[in-house]
Design a protein around this nucleic acid. Structure first.
Lengths: 198, 198
DNA sequence: CAAATTTTGTACTGATCAATCCAAAACATC
DNA sequence: GATGTTTTGGATTGATCAGTACAAAATTTG
């Protein structure tokens, strides 16, 4: 072959993901990305072609990581469905309220990108749309289980409950970015559970 | 005095507000703002000093408008508290699902700015924090009324219910920006109401 | 050790960014 | 109608933006 790379591509995507996560797409310059990844400009463009493409890879990685974490919680068949949902909300709280380096939460890259770009960039809107569909399907499935195992009780359809919980999670992440602390987020999660466990 | 202005300052702030609302702070250039407001660069800087200051005025205006609209609904003492909350959610749905010019919803400038800037710009974070406090107080007051008039039933504190509803509304706005249609938002609102009317 | 191939560092590009400058224009006051 | 004051249009500023050019460096293969 030829001269080997001195960096790990996956780690570079990971570093870029954190940079975009912290500051958003527009406010993260290619210079910022070079510093965050440790790459020079040549290696950067040689590997990722453009800021846009790197962002798409970073977002795809984030979405996959988040989705597999959440699936692991929701598909734990040793627990009643409602308990799985409680744990899902607890994991969101932990992500938002736990270890905040500079003070405020950076929220969720998926939510942040929905707000910043999904209306303006169709490709990214579709990527996020697929993610929402996947997550909604996983939640619907858990609500179906909960209606059968008795841990969930509601007149609403599993589909409606899934959309509801998805919105609640997004709202919790925005609240965290707005400064809500752990106690406030826990209050939200408890009240949210009441909608289908009353 | 001297040469009079040929534009209405309030209308200019209004036009800037819509531009920032549609595209966010970073993605709206001063050139975009001149076009949106109809001002030349001299008038722009002579009147508003900087993009930053204009944004703050636009955001403050948005927050005031939204808050007074919502207060009008929440303080309608001829309705039970739960019904006022239902109408509040309906007004959010109308704002998000009604008349979308280019297709997708532009969401809420308050939510958008929380996500884009509140972590990085302390002044703006404080402005939004005061807004959240005001809205939470208004909601808490309605929940207190609801617990007395019997239209609300919950073991949670009015404060917790207020935080919860605030998060739900934020989540609905993010969902709308992610492409949720009116039916989906209505499903979320109905399920959300179940948390304190079961 | 030479040839082929890829990565890397650095200087550079044109475009666009927010903001400024300055003189001409338009009004109120005298 | 002259004077003083403010607004306005348009050219211009230096900084920063995303992305490129190019040659030196580092490796594999023969």
């Amino acid at each position: 072959m030829a001269r080997p790379r001195t960096f790990d591509e996956t780690r570079a995507v990971d570093a870029a993901m954190r940079a975009f996560w912290a500051n958003g797409y527009e406010a993260t310059s290619t210079e910022d990305l070079c510093v965050a990844t440790g790459l020079g400009r040549s290696s950067f463009y040689n590997t990722f072609n453009s800021k846009r493409e790197l962002f798409q890879r970073a977002l795809a990685r984030y979405v996959d990581m988040t989705n597999s974490n959440q699936s692991a919680i929701l598909e734990n068949s040793s627990l009643p469905a409602a308990e799985r949902i409680r744990l899902l909300l607890a994991s969101v709280i932990e992500a938002e309220a736990g270890n905040r380096p500079g003070g405020r939460s950076v929220g969720c890259l998926g939510v942040n990108t929905t707000v910043e770009l999904s209306g303006r960039e169709p490709d990214i809107g579709r990527l996020l749309g697929r993610d929402t569909d996947r997550r909604t399907a996983a939640l619907r499935s858990v609500f179906e289980i909960g209606l059968r195992d008795g841990s969930v009780s509601s007149d609403r359809s599993p589909e409606a409950l899934a959309r509801y919980l998805n919105a609640v999670i997004g709202g919790m992440r925005v609240s965290a970015q707005g400064g809500a602390d752990r106690a406030a987020l826990e209050a939200v999660a408890e009240a949210a559970m009441d909608a289908f466990t009353c």
